[in-house]
């Protein structure tokens, strides 16, 4: 399968400091790819390189099979972009801004009305100048301008910043709808819950290096899972001493464990005891993520 985005040994240096170093990464059609990392890890640099806003120090980036630095004008016809640090033309009205941005694409803003109604933008809101918008409204307008022309590749740098939970859900639903239409989504975030929710594959980046690249299901298997057990009576601590188990908290009648990998040996041990309660939530990327960083 031909990739939509292909980073070929891409590096970007700011002086001697690497923004991103020797990145090799392929994103496939119809995929939702989550690009994770803390602030300053190189997420935004990678996105800006892909969007021809930065020139790579070495390497090439192919988008839709074409070199970005040569064919960016053709490539950008199929891209919808929402930058992380969103700045709009504040003196324009909302509708004027959407028309201005859509004007460069020469196709109808197919999803504009759907997005406006999903995000509850009234005609009065659209007629107002952007400088009078709240932070959340600006973010929603930025999302609408990125998605309105039905792009084949959607690039979003921390898109849920400033959105309330309701509007986050609207965005996730719309992205899932676009995914179902075969669109590719490249999504940077440090919000792990949303990555778990919508991404197919995740890349973890630290200090300019891609340190992990996993399908979300595989990553969940590798995840550290927390188990809170309340016993009806006492228990033997040595029953729970295993290679893949760490005791987080140990009290009479209560035990908290961090389990990585196979959970069956623990379940077998637990079957010997009478329990009052067992809390075993969905694995959190947060802890797995922190594990990667600690290492």
């Amino acid at each position: 399968m031909e990739s939509v985005i292909n980073f070929l040994n891409i590096s970007k240096y700011y002086g001697k400091q690497p923004g991103i170093a020797a990145l090799n990464l392929e994103i496939y059609p119809g995929e939702v790819f989550g690009f994770l990392g803390p602030n300053g890890a190189g997420k935004t640099t990678t996105i800006r390189l892909m969007l021809h806003l930065l020139k790579p120090s070495s390497g090439r980036i192919l988008v839709f099979g074409k070199n970005v630095s040569q064919y960016y004008r053709q490539i950008f016809k199929q891209i919808g972009n929402l930058p992380g640090e969103l700045k709009l033309y504040e003196h324009l009205s909302g509708i004027h801004y959407l028309d201005f941005m859509s004007g460069f694409l020469r196709n109808e803003p197919r999803w504009r009305n759907d997005l406006l109604s999903a995000f509850k933008f009234s005609p009065a809101d659209l007629g107002r100048k952007i400088k009078y918008y709240s932070h959340g409204m600006k973010q929603k307008l930025g999302i609408i301008q990125a998605l309105q022309n039905d792009p084949d590749l959607i690039v979003m740098d921390e898109p849920t910043e400033g959105l309330d939970p309701l509007n986050k859900t609207v965005l996730y639903d719309f992205l899932m709808f676009l995914k179902s239409r075969g669109k590719t989504i490249f999504f940077s975030s440090h919000n792990l819950a949303e990555v778990e929710k919508i991404c197919d594959r995740v890349g973890l980046v630290r200090a300019g290096q891609l340190i992990a690249l996993e399908g979300i299901e595989n990553l969940k298997k590798k995840m550290v899972r927390r188990m809170e057990i309340t016993f009806d009576g006492d228990y033997k601590a040595e029953d729970f001493t295993m290679d893949n188990v760490a005791m987080v908290d140990r009290q009479p009648g209560r035990l908290i464990l961090n389990i990585s990998g196979d959970i069956n040996p623990i379940i077998k041990k637990l079957s010997k005891y009478k329990l009052n309660n067992l809390v075993f939530p969905e694995p959190s990327l947060e802890e797995t993520f922190m594990k990667f960083y600690r290492n």
């Binding site: 969007l51 021809h52 950008f76 640090e85 969103l86 700045k87 033309y89 941005m101 460069f104």
Partner: peptide, 14 residues
């Protein structure tokens, strides 16, 4: 400086 080019220059214009 304002980063308004971050959207404008990712539209299909030279």
């Amino acid at each position: 400086e304002n980063k308004t080019f971050d959207i404008l220059l990712t539209k299909p214009i030279d």
